[in-house]
């Protein structure tokens, strides 16, 4: 059953002269309890997508078109009051750096209790009890004492657990996790990911995991979307995307993984850099870096097309499939 359905979502950023397009009409669905990974390099529009879903884009960014149907309601058409009622309640977000995402002048307890009381009629004591339960769920040692502590008294890993506990407070249907482990120590990253996965599984919570770590994506998610320059260029089951990437960009990403390179030799990389929003090339945005680019790629943007279980936006893939079909027909 569909929990979230995004159609032709376009996000623009106002600049002094005109505006640049950060998200160019992306569409995707997330089912109830489904875990979806969003990968791509910095600036591809992953975080923007997350913010747009929460209606958290701040000036100069704005939603220019499309719809975001969440539990049947269009987020882009909600009143500020409806948006507030949704945020942190039905849809929660976990941010990147737990060192700066908790308010330094409020105690952990205050920050948890206010969230509960913003959405439910609870006494402070009742809210405190719920907060305690959630802290226990995310394996915070001596939770009672933590409630009265300030963020600076806790370690980064502990803070991110608390951020996760806050996100889970009101049993949301969807959690958007924006690089939840990037700012953490490598040794803690795996713990936090395991925790997030466990929480989503046991509570049947949908997860949109924004990351550039393909290893994490393959561990945690069922489906993956690859983004490039504000577009989804490949999407499908995580296993098939990791094992059999179709788009040259996704192939490049997978080949760039250190595991794909024999020890001692140079790591593979995709040549060039992603185009900036203000200087988007004609046609496929990836063509300047693509070894397979043809004149068609330089002129026409390839549409996201369904091939079996995956969707790919690439002329080359389209050609291959056309030839395959021809060969099958000839046989």
């Amino acid at each position: 059953m569909t929990l979230l359905s995004v159609r032709d979502l376009t996000v623009k950023f106002k600049t002094r002269e005109s505006s640049v397009t950060a998200l160019d009409g992306i569409s995707f669905d997330i089912a109830r309890g489904e875990r979806v990974g969003v990968v791509g390099e910095s600036g591809a529009g992953k975080s923007i997508t997350g913010f747009a879903l929460m209606n958290l884009l701040s000036r100069p960014g704005y939603i220019d078109g499309g719809q975001i149907l969440f539990e049947g309601q269009d987020v882009t058409k909600m009143t500020p009051k409806q948006v507030r009622a949704m945020r942190g309640n039905r849809m929660a977000m976990i941010f990147q750096d737990p060192m700066v995402t908790l308010n330094p002048v409020l105690t952990i307890g205050q920050q948890m209790i206010e969230t509960l009381r913003a959405h439910r009629k609870l006494s402070k004591e009742e809210a405190r009890q719920i907060a305690l339960v959630k802290l226990k769920e995310v394996y915070i040692p001596s939770p009672e004492a933590r409630l009265d502590q300030y963020p600076h008294e806790l370690s980064g890993g502990m803070r991110q657990r608390i951020v996760i506990a806050i996100a889970l407070l009101l049993d949301p249907q969807l959690i958007i996790a924006d690089e939840p482990t990037t700012a953490l120590d490598v040794t803690i990253q795996a713990d936090i990911m395991d925790l997030l996965l466990e929480m989503c599984r046991s509570n049947m919570v949908g997860l949109m995991l924004i990351t550039h770590d393909l290893g994490v994506v393959s561990q945690v998610t069922e489906r993956t979307m690859v983004m490039y320059a504000g577009r989804i260029i490949e999407s499908g089951r995580t296993r098939s995307i990791i094992n059999d990437p179709q788009h040259p960009y996704t192939q490049g990403l997978i080949n760039a993984l250190p595991q794909q390179t024999p020890p001692g030799s140079r790591l593979k990389q995709i040549p060039g850099t992603m185009p900036t929003l203000s200087a988007m090339p004609q046609g496929c945005p990836f063509h300047p870096r693509c070894a397979l680019a043809t004149d068609e790629c330089r002129a026409v943007m390839p549409p996201l097309t369904q091939y079996g279980e995956v969707q790919v936006a690439c002329h080359e893939v389209q050609r291959l499939h056309r030839e395959l079909a021809k060969m099958e027909a000839a046989q």
């Binding site: 958290l56 507030r84 945020r87 942190g88 929660a92 995402t101 969230t115």
Partner: peptide, 12 residues
Amino acid sequence: PYIRTARAKGLA
């Protein structure tokens, strides 16, 4: 960032 968090929690 912590103000963004506060907004994401649905506070007024």
